[in-house]
């Protein structure tokens, strides 16, 4: 069963007299254990689509479903809860908190959840991305590739159903990017999550089980 489904989703930005259609009638779904790549030229709506999938943005038209629940009915608090428990994020420029150590950054999404102790899982995830010896380092003591691996561990801490990555290799050199993609692919099967990544880098496509191409907000068949 699909983790997330978009049905004829449309996103329009109105700014004064002008209207930008960022997404038009987009149908999409992602399943556990698969790696989906979204590609397309700059400005084609890839980030917008990922934000809609990640419940960070609400579409102007169409339906978003998570486990057969319609997201447009969700309150702000329910959206936050859903992001916390079901969705992991990896950003292009890592977005780690500079005053927290690697392991604290990984724990961050569950930090306010005092009922569970995620320390062991955070340490385990960092070992699995090859940073077992960097647990107490702060982000400025880590390389770009290491930072992104911390970010991947953070995305997985709450055992999500889906991990969203917007140009995860955009700030990394080719080889480092390749190792990051290897990690993501490995977790797709190991943790049985759906991974949806955006890129305009052809490289990512090699790793994908499925590729969705966007041009001017329209999915190309």
């Amino acid at each position: 069963m699909s983790v997330i489904v978009l049905e004829s989703v449309t996103k329009r930005y109105e700014s004064g007299a002008e209207t930008v259609v960022a997404l038009e009638n987009v149908d999409f779904h992602a399943d556990r254990g698969e790696m989906v790549s979204i590609i397309g030229p700059s400005g084609s709506g890839k980030s917008t689509m990922l934000n809609v999938i990640g419940l960070l943005d609400t579409p102007t038209g169409g339906t978003v479903r998570i486990d057969d629940r319609v997201v447009s009915d969700f309150s702000e608090a329910e959206l936050t809860e859903e992001r916390r428990s079901g969705i992991g994020f990896v950003f292009q420029d890592f977005h780690l908190l500079p005053m927290l150590t690697a392991v604290e950054n990984v724990e961050l999404p569950s930090m306010w959840d005092t009922s569970v102790d995620r320390r062991d899982r955070a340490v385990d995830l960092l070992h699995r991305v090859g940073l077992g010896d960097r647990l107490t380092h702060t982000p400025d003591e880590l390389s770009g590739g290491q930072r992104q691996r911390v970010a991947i561990a953070r995305a997985l801490i709450n055992e999500p159903d889906i991990v969203l990555a917007d140009e995860p290799t955009g700030n990394l050199d080719r080889d480092t990017g390749a190792t990051i993609l290897d990690e993501l692919t490995r977790f797709t099967t190991d943790e049985d999550v759906a991974v949806v990544s955006v890129t305009h880098d052809e490289q990512l496509v090699e790793y994908a089980d499925r590729v969705v191409e966007l041009i001017d907000g329209v999915v190309q068949e």
């Binding site: 990640g54 960070l56 969705i87 950003f91 977005h95 961050l108």
Partner: peptide, 16 residues
């Protein structure tokens, strides 16, 4: 601002 956006994105509540 960006940092707080990340916190909100990964599921930290408004109240928190």
């Amino acid at each position: 601002r960006g940092e707080i956006g990340v916190l909100r994105a990964v599921g930290i509540r408004r109240g928190e």
